[in-house]
Design a protein around this nucleic acid. Sequence first.
DNA 1: GTCTATAGGTAGATAGAC
DNA 2: GTCTATCTACCTATAGAC
Lengths: 214, 214
Amino acid sequence: MARTTEKLDEKIRARNIRIILDVATDVFSRKGFDGARIAEIAELANLPKANIYYYFSSKEDIYSTIITNLIAGWDDALSKLRVDQDPADALRQYVRAKLVYARENPRESRLFASEIIQGARFLSKKDRAHMRAATDRYVAVLDQWMQEGRMRKIDARHFFIMLWGATQFYSDFEPLACDALHRNSLSEQDYDSAVDTIVSSIVSGVIPVAQPNR
Amino acid sequence: MARTTEKLDEKIRARNIRIILDVATDVFSRKGFDGARIAEIAELANLPKANIYYYFSSKEDIYSTIITNLIAGWDDALSKLRVDQDPADALRQYVRAKLVYARENPRESRLFASEIIQGARFLSKKDRAHMRAATDRYVAVLDQWMQEGRMRKIDARHFFIMLWGATQFYSDFEPLACDALHRNSLSEQDYDSAVDTIVSSIVSGVIPVAQPNR
DNA sequence: GTCTATAGGTAGATAGAC
DNA sequence: GTCTATCTACCTATAGAC
């Protein structure tokens, strides 16, 4: 009997926590940390406000939980660049993976963008170190390719910033992307075009090589 | 006498409005519209809270004024792409102008980014139409270059989104850029490296052309 | 034009009944 | 575990003295 109750409680608890984190992601992404209201989260979760405080100790507790979760999610979502891959193929896979993640997780992407714009106040040192380490690994792969002559020598760190900015724009600044593309909303084809444009631009360049008959 | 008083009043008014808009840009950029507090704006402006409401009718009034002002500022800041320029030179100038603007106006840049992330609720139709028209003019220049064979055929709209994302990252997501570059803050040299990496990547591509002896 | 005082409402968080 | 009622603090905005 006790076991049944415990199991049921665990189910209710897990379910409520999941719902709270889900709607909180929505509210935080639309309002930022300071602008978000616990009352709105409670309303969207169909729970009394006090119930939120039964599962989480504070507003910051909910927020930090979401951030740590989404950073963990990135590692799985982003295909790993490996030194033995073809650089052009690998870059295409990386850009595609970033755009797919952005398209499938727009709220998480915007919440994180909002957190950074507002000064990265709740991004823990651990999470930042984790991200720096991931960047360093990617940079090492590109540096290796450059050493082997399989890639032109550029600054790999700035290069990754360029890829991040180019890909995140579609989810974080969607209204601007829609305006620029004359769309009401972005379709899967638009995302495919984004991959093609980004990859073909950075792989081959946009300026034709001068004719040899000069 | 009346004239002197009027002049003095105008000076005080102009000065106070300027100060309010200045500190409000800071607060809105750090907290977003909903998170910003009039009390904080008043405190930073060294004015009583009620004084803010003497110059502006509401929180939204201050916010909208800032947004319209900063959009007007862009037209001057961004060097115009002209069809008769050399494409590579023109793209370098454009990227540089965007990065210089981002570096010199980080608060405006972040406030605007925050507004878009939070759904572009206060971006007027007029301002959006204005931005779309500017984009269309830039796109027309690139399309012309492509028709003349001076530029590879890519989607000009996605291409501009790539440039916007790549350049805005440095001001809007500065903490991430600092982490990626292993810096405490970004120097002018870092911005120069950003221009070089972005421009050389998109102009020539990062993958060497295959040797002709295949 | 300036600013104190305050209205009227809502925020995050908690006490305690069930 | 759940939720009503409520605390204290703070919010936007205004009234009205100077």
